[in-house]
């Protein structure tokens, strides 16, 4: 049933880049994703917010199959997610991901971190990969740190390197899984600014975050999740000024008063 509808979606070659249809996932007895339907069009910035444990991180991780799903379908650029293997690896190269805990390769320098995917996955020639990497590091403002190891950088710098590493693959879409949640407050803005710039440049982005300011200013659409369901989808203005659901009202009243 869902498969049929998805192939129909994909057939007219619309601008739908990521399509989730009827996605369900359990962690043991916990039903973390319940009948999720979500479509992200090319160039759109979608911010996913919600209380912790609502399944938003899991949702983000299913899109490049770091988490498998129990039922439903996920397509990226018209192609359904393949099984684990070379084809999935190829697809993952087109989907950039930024993690809460940065996950930079600890035994490689900053420059090597950004070069690795280009050289080993895209088979780009070393010199070209290095030029592109330096250019990306400059763009996120850590060009001078290129030869340091990740542990020598601050959290904000590490996260910006992680963004550069993902961008180096020329991804079609970028996934951000709480990119600022592990950062000291004074470093959050430097990361958000890079993300803002990326959004302005037209990158398709799915951002799981607690940064309401970013959601307001950069998002085309806010997706509010609670208890494994998408409770509300709206434009940022609509969502923050006039939330429809009680869950969203409750959530906003808790976070906006501090």
């Amino acid at each position: 049933m869902t498969e049929v509808s998805v192939t129909k979606d994909a057939a007219p070659a619309t601008d739908d880049l990521v399509v989730l249809g009827g996605v369900n996932k359990h962690f043991g007895a916990l039903h973390v994703l319940q009948d999720i339907d979500l479509t992200i069009t090319r160039g759109e910035v979608v911010v996913v917010i919600g209380p912790s444990g609502s399944g938003k991180s899991t949702l983000c991780r299913t899109i490049n199959r770091l988490e498998t799903i129990d039922s439903g379908s996920i397509t990226v650029d018209g192609k359904p997610l393949p099984q684990e293997g070379r084809e999935l690896a190829r697809l993952r190269a087109d989907v950039g991901m930024v993690f809460q805990s940065f996950n930079l390769f600890a035994h490689k320098t900053v420059l090597q971190n950004v070069m690795l995917g280009q050289v080993k996955v895209r088979k780009t020639d070393k010199k070209a990969a290095e030029d592109r990497s330096r250019q990306l590091l400059d763009r996120v403002g850590v060009g001078v740190q290129a030869d340091k190891y990740p542990a020598q950088l601050s959290g904000g710098q590490q996260q910006r390197v992680a963004i550069a590493r993902a961008l180096a693959m020329d991804p079609k879409v970028m996934l951000f899984d709480e990119p600022t949640s592990a950062l000291d407050p004074e470093m959050i803005n430097e990361v958000l600014e890079v993300m803002q710039q990326l959004a302005r440049d037209g990158m398709t982005m799915i951002v799981v975050t607690h940064e309401m300011g970013f959601a307001r200013s950069a998002a085309n659409r806010v997706v509010f999740m609670a208890d494994g369901r998408i409770v509300e989808e709206a434009t940022p203005e609509q969502f923050f000024s006039n939330p429809r659901s009680d869950r969203a009202k409750d959530f906003l009243s808790k976070i906006l008063h501090h």
């Binding site: 490049n64 770091l66 070379r86 690896a89 190829r90 697809l91 993952r92 190269a93 087109d94 989907v95 950039g96 991901m97 993690f99 805990s101 996950n103 930079l104 390769f105 600890a106 035994h107 690795l116 995917g117 080993k120 996955v121 992680a162 590493r165 993902a166 693959m169």
Partner: peptide, 24 residues
């Protein structure tokens, strides 16, 4: 997270083991 990051940039299992996991 090291393996997840490597998977997310499209590396294969053997690449991840050889280039990321075993050296560490």
């Amino acid at each position: 997270g090291q393996a997840e990051a490597a998977r997310s940039i499209g590396m294969t299992f053997t690449q991840i083991l050889r280039l990321i996991i075993l050296p560490q």
